[in-house]
Design a binder for these strands. Structure first.
Lengths: 145, 145
DNA sequence: CGGGTCGGTTTAACTTTGAAACCGACTACC
DNA sequence: GGTAGTCGGTTTCAAAGTTAAACCGACCCG
């Protein structure tokens, strides 16, 4: 049988990040938006749903709550390694949107430090090192590095 | 601003394939399941939703209806180039599921003709040629090619 | 004391989904 | 000719999910 097992793999992924808003929440955290109120404002999502989706992501180990102050105790949301590992999927989805719904000029992701456009694999082909989310930036395809 | 434009790119993608079932439908067509009844049975989706999702995918140019008989006219659903171009995203999502929800032993995608495991980019790193969906197969990571 | 921020929870309308029944156009069998 | 079955849907209606808006406790600031 062809492409048999990936049934369950994609379904497993969809079960975790396939609900409405979830991928966009992960993307926002990836982009550096970590606080509840910032996420809520940026996405325009209802607060109860944001609350619920974040709880689900924390449960699944994709996101973790990190205190940034006491009194009152406040936490921000950060990606775990498992969450950061979604970057390849996010980039693939983004590139598809770029290719087929291009917003003239198209956006490319480049290695923040050397300007080389990235492949789907978040490794810089010039530097041969893994590129962490914070090291990725976007620029127009026509811009110089 | 960092990672600014990809907001709209990911959102554009999600607008097309982000509804429930849609990605799984694309994956099934990718896998060679082309008929309405086969899709319905394989996914266990309600028929009205499958009908609606397929119509949406056709509208978006991801999938096309191809007649395979007249009297009564019956069509099957096939990926357009735009739809086939989702393969990188599907593979990325699949690999994440594999890595974090591994079903012992994990599945890897390999180039059907040479057995080399594929990267996210659907190009065989050994053969240096683009690998079309039909040329991809799955096998256990422990199997030999 | 009065107001504002932060990170939520609750509530009640509204929208989407899902299961099941139904349907038209055929084909195949008897 | 009649009956059953397949295919690809559409219709219906209850259940589930989404939304906006109100509310809340714990603080801070003036």
């Amino acid at each position: 049988m062809v492409l048999d097992k990936e049934t369950s793999s994609i379904e497993a992924t969809i079960a975790v990040v396939g609900e409405r808003w979830t991928i966009l929440i992960v993307r926002d955290i990836f982009r550096g938006i970590h606080r509840f109120s910032q996420l809520q404002e940026d996405l325009g999502i209802a607060k109860n749903l944001l609350s619920e989706r974040l709880a689900h992501l924390v449960e699944e180990g994709v996101v973790e709550r990190v205190p940034y102050q006491d009194r009152p105790l406040r936490c921000e949301y950060r990606l775990t390694p498992k969450g950061a590992d979604l970057s390849a999927s996010l980039i693939a989805l983004m590139k598809w949107g770029d290719r087929w719904y291009a917003d003239d000029p198209p956006t490319v992701l480049v290695h923040r430090t050397c300007g080389t456009p990235l492949d789907l694999d978040p490794t810089c082909p010039r530097c041969s090192v893994a590129v962490t989310p914070g090291q990725i930036r976007s620029q127009n395809a026509t811009e110089e590095s």
